[in-house]
């Protein structure tokens, strides 16, 4: 039974934290809902002072500003390529490591290195590797007799380079989490299936995978949310380009808010994005509850 104490004590415990959260997170978030009604351009001679425009920002977003929706398409493409690769490789990694192998402690230590690295650093190093002029990627292609590729400087391959960095940084994470989850599964269902003569493959698909369902869903939502936040790799590898080829949603809001300084317009974009992300989170939460 939880303790019941007087209101003053509860407030003393909760208030300091809430004060900070309200000032930094909730306050600004609510401020978005005010800003979105204004034409407000920071450091602009005229629109430095906000001008009320009603729902104009949204009308622009829904009727003519296709770049915003294009950013969503790019975000979905990026997520749909990167996340499945991370899950397949991560699952294989977890299955390979889920037994006694020599030096597995060192292996796990190595797997943690990408997690320790700042995403900015990861993006920068891959940029060194992918550099079309003298990077290792083209050097290796040359060694096996293939022509050099433009990588992050081309419309068709820029997205691929972002995916590679994301896969590099997050596959080990998915693998380590699934490894922990595998280790904590009950042994009885698998032993029972084995006694009934099920093959390792059947056991994996019909026993192990269903037991991992909720962990997989949680990992999936964490990874999808992270894809929506993708910024550092873009900032270091492609600047959202060429053109808008790799402008994912966070980068789009950054371009509009912090490059063009159209903060009212960007606030409208932020509000729409918050709504879309909430829908995705709630959908997954429902799935996990089932």
């Amino acid at each position: 039974m939880p303790l019941d104490v007087d209101l003053k004590t509860k407030l003393l415990l909760l208030a300091p934290g809430f004060a900070i959260i309200i000032f930094i997170t909730i306050g600004p978030f609510v401020f978005n809902y005010y800003m979105m009604f204004f034409r407000w351009k920071l450091y602009d001679p005229i629109y430095r002072h906000p001008v009320f425009v009603g729902l104009n920002n949204f009308i622009t977003l829904f009727t003519e500003y296709s770049l915003f929706w294009d950013a969503y398409v790019k975000t979905f493409i990026f997520t749909l390529i990167a996340v499945p690769i991370e899950f397949v490789l991560g699952m294989l990694l977890a299955l390979s490591l889920n037994r006694k192998i020599p030096g597995d402690r060192i292996l796990r230590g190595i797997l943690l290195i990408p997690l320790a690295m700042a995403p900015v650093a990861a993006g920068s190093i891959w940029r060194v590797i992918f550099n079309p002029m003298n990077g290792f990627a083209n050097y290796f292609l040359h060694l096996i007799g293939l022509p050099p590729q433009p990588w992050n400087t081309s419309r068709s391959q820029a997205m691929l380079t972002l995916v590679v960095v994301d896969v590099w940084q997050w596959t080990p994470f998915v693998g380590i989490v699934l490894l922990s989850a595998l280790a904590s599964l009950p042994r009885e269902p698998m032993e029972a299936a084995m006694i009934d003569g099920a093959s390792p493959r059947q056991i994996f698909w019909h026993v192990t995978l269903p037991l991992l369902r909720n962990i997989l869903l949680l990992l999936l939502i964490l990874r999808i949310i992270e894809c929506f936040k993708t910024f550092d790799y873009i900032y270091t590898l492609t600047y959202g380009g060429p053109g808008s080829a790799t402008t994912l949603i966070t980068y789009r809001i950054y371009l509009d808010g912090f490059r063009r300084w159209e903060v009212g317009f960007a606030a409208a974009e932020a509000v729409l994005t918050a709504i879309i992300v909430s829908f995705i989170v709630v959908a997954f939460y429902r799935l996990m509850r089932r």
Binding site: I225, F228, T250, V281
Partner: peptide, 26 residues
């Protein structure tokens, strides 16, 4: 209890850019 805890956690799930822009203005 559960709801407040989950609400606080959910603040972390939104892309940071959503809050940084107004925070920058403030």
């Amino acid at each position: 209890n559960e709801n407040i805890a989950f609400f606080i956690l959910s603040l972390r799930l939104l892309p940071p850019i959503v809050g940084i822009l107004p925070l920058y203005v403030i």
